[in-house]
Structures are given as C-alpha cells and as structure tokens.
C-alpha cells in the first residue's frame, strides 16, 4: 500500500503552504515553495511505484529541472530587491500597489 507516502506528501505540502502564507521573508517563502515541489515529487515517484511505469519518475525529474531554473531566477530577483531596498521582507514590496 502506498497510502502512507501520499499522506506524508500531503503533510509536507501543507506545511509548505502554511509557510508560504505565514512567513514574510522572501527567502523563506521561496524555501516553502521548494518544500511543496518536493512533496509533489514524492507523490510522482510513489505513484510510479503503484502503477509500475516510469513516467512518474520522468515527471519528477522534469519538476527538479524546472525547480532548479526557478531557484536561479528567483534568488537573483531577491538579490536585486535586496540591493535596492536593503530588505527581503515582502511587506516592503508595495511599489505596484496602486
């Protein structure tokens, strides 16, 4: 039975979601997103085991590639914001509010 894997992934995803909503440091928000991506990967790989085909593992592989690219761009944006505002708190990013 692979239910425990799904439940573990659900718990990790929810913790990531809560972190995404509750934290205000852009870096930690980013880490929470990574946590959610990892939870999804766990589902992909355990489903690959359930169905006996490797497509789930290929999907997890692509998720990893996309996550790596996303981290590079996201972190350089955070660095740029930090350079101009001396802060990584998302509370200060209100330039596009109006």
């Amino acid at each position: 039975m692979n239910d425990p894997y799904i439940v573990l992934a659900a718990i990790l995803f929810t913790i990531g979601l809560v972190g995404f909503l509750i934290r205000r440091n852009a870096l930690v928000i980013f880490m929470s997103v990574e946590l959610m991506l990892n939870a999804c990967n766990l589902v992909f790989i355990s489903m690959s085991q359930v169905h006996g085909i490797l497509d789930g593992q290929v999907a997890a592989f692509f998720v990893m590639v996309v996550a790596a690219a996303e981290v590079v761009v996201g972190l350089s944006i955070i660095l740029m914001i930090y350079r101009s505002r001396r802060s990584t708190s998302v509370d200060n990013l209100t330039a596009m509010k109006h």
């Binding site: 573990l8 718990i11 913790i15 509750i22 946590l35």
Partner: peptide, 8 residues
C-alpha cells in the same frame, strides 16, 4: 516532517 516544520 520535523525538517519541514523547521523550515517554516
């Protein structure tokens, strides 16, 4: 789960 809680 402990690590995930730590992240948040």
């Amino acid at each position: 789960i402990a690590g995930a809680l730590g992240v948040v």
